[in-house]
Structures are given as C-alpha cells and as structure tokens.
C-alpha cells in the first residue's frame, strides 16, 4: 500500500475542531469589533482551511514534492492578492494636485 492511512480518530478530532471554529466565527461576527472582525474571520477561516489541507487532504503525511506543489499555489495566490491590493488600497494617498 503506497499511501499513508490516517487513523479515523484524527478525522473525528478535525471534524470537531472545524465545527467548533464555525460556531466561534458566527458568534464573533455578531460582536462589534470594528476592523478586527475581518482579521478574526479570515484568521479562523485560514485555520480551518489549514486543518482540512493538512489532515483531510493528507498533506501533512505527503511527500516534499506535494508540499512544494501546494505551497506554490498559495504563494502565487498571495502574490496575486498582495500586488493588486497594494495598488487599489494606496490610490489617492498622494496629495499632489491632479494635472487635469
């Protein structure tokens, strides 16, 4: 058998953690935390996604080559988001008079 079999117990634990984090993210959404709401919501979502990738998708037990492939996907996603948003979010920062 070439692949790694993960004990069922781990799947149940991850499932419990995902359900718990879902409840937390709904609960926190109804509390007014200003800009922190987004930080917490995305932090929880990323934690959940990481659990799914590492355990349900077996990446924790996979080869370095698979790690590199997965990492490259998120690296390029980060480049896409960072460079585009660094443009949009900084527009209008300068107070120079417009030439037109």
């Amino acid at each position: 058998m070439p692949q790694h079999t993960i004990p069922k117990r781990i799947y149940y634990i991850i499932f419990g953690a995902l359900m718990f984090l879902t409840a937390i993210t709904i609960w926190v959404a109804f509390i007014d935390l200003g800009a922190f709401s987004d930080v917490i919501a995305l932090g929880i979502a990323t934690t959940k996604a990481t659990l799914v990738i590492l355990y349900f998708m077996h990446v924790r037990y996979s080869s370095k080559l698979t790690w590199a492939a997965v990492f490259s996907g998120f690296l390029f996603l980060a480049i896409l988001l960072t460079i585009t948003m660094s443009d949009y979010l900084t527009r209008g920062w300068d107070s120079l008079p417009k030439p037109w």
Partner: peptide, 18 residues
C-alpha cells in the same frame, strides 16, 4: 470545494452583522 466555502461563508454572510 469545502475550503472554498470555508472562505465564502464569512466573506459573504458574516460581514456587517454586528
């Protein structure tokens, strides 16, 4: 597909609830 929804849910349903 589950992971996509994990991000869609807070970004679409949970903003502006407080």
């Amino acid at each position: 597909v589950d992971i996509v929804w994990i991000y869609l849910f807070p970004l679409l349903y949970l903003i502006g609830r407080s």
